[in-house]
């Protein structure tokens, strides 16, 4: 059965090099979603049962900090992936995500995909490989933020 989202997935750089049967499996767990500007996508502590591929728009990764208000540490834009907590227990979000602009995304059902990865380890390997890449990139750019490159350092 060809899911209408398959062509979109096939085109996307994140799924480059994946076999058709795997794309089919993933497409079976995906759907189109939209968020209004300012809309909360998920809260810190919520069950992490999805991940998102942003097609268009801008999402803030935020923390609600007492006396500091909502602090954005990072934004995720068109073409980027949001969320990997669905991969690891306790499957809970570690931050708030809020759309800064009207945002279109593909949402992937994490529970559904986790089950499919358990059944098909080849699929699991392909998914984890790709998420590992994302996590590494985020870690590297977070380290650069930590370095406070533009600060005046004695």
């Amino acid at each position: 059965m060809i899911h209408t989202l398959e062509p979109i997935l096939r085109e996307h750089p994140f799924f480059q090099g994946m076999e058709d049967r795997h794309i089919e499996l993933i497409a079976g767990c995906s759907m189109n979603v939209r968020f209004e500007a300012g809309q909360v996508i998920f809260h810190e502590g919520d069950p992490a049962d999805h991940f998102y591929l942003i097609r268009e728009g801008l999402v803030s990764v935020q923390f609600a900090i007492p006396h500091r208000g909502l602090t954005t540490v990072q934004t995720v834009g068109g073409g980027e992936v949001l969320g990997w907590s669905w991969l690891f227990p306790p499957y809970r979000w570690h931050f708030d995500a809020r759309a800064q602009q009207p945002t279109h995304a593909l949402a992937f059902d994490g529970k559904c995909l986790r089950a499919k990865c358990d059944e098909d380890h080849d699929l699991g390997y392909e998914i984890y490989k790709r998420f590992m890449q994302i996590v590494t990139e985020r870690l590297e750019s977070t380290r650069l933020q930590l370095l406070d490159m533009y600060g005046n350092h004695p």
């Binding site: 803030s60 990764v61 208000g69 602090t71 954005t72 540490v73 934004t75 602009q101 933020q145 490159m149």
Partner: peptide
């Protein structure tokens, strides 16, 4: 690199 809540643009290096 860092923003107050009034910033609606990109955050990140």
């Amino acid at each position: 690199d860092r923003a107050a809540s009034s910033w609606r643009g990109n955050v990140g290096v």
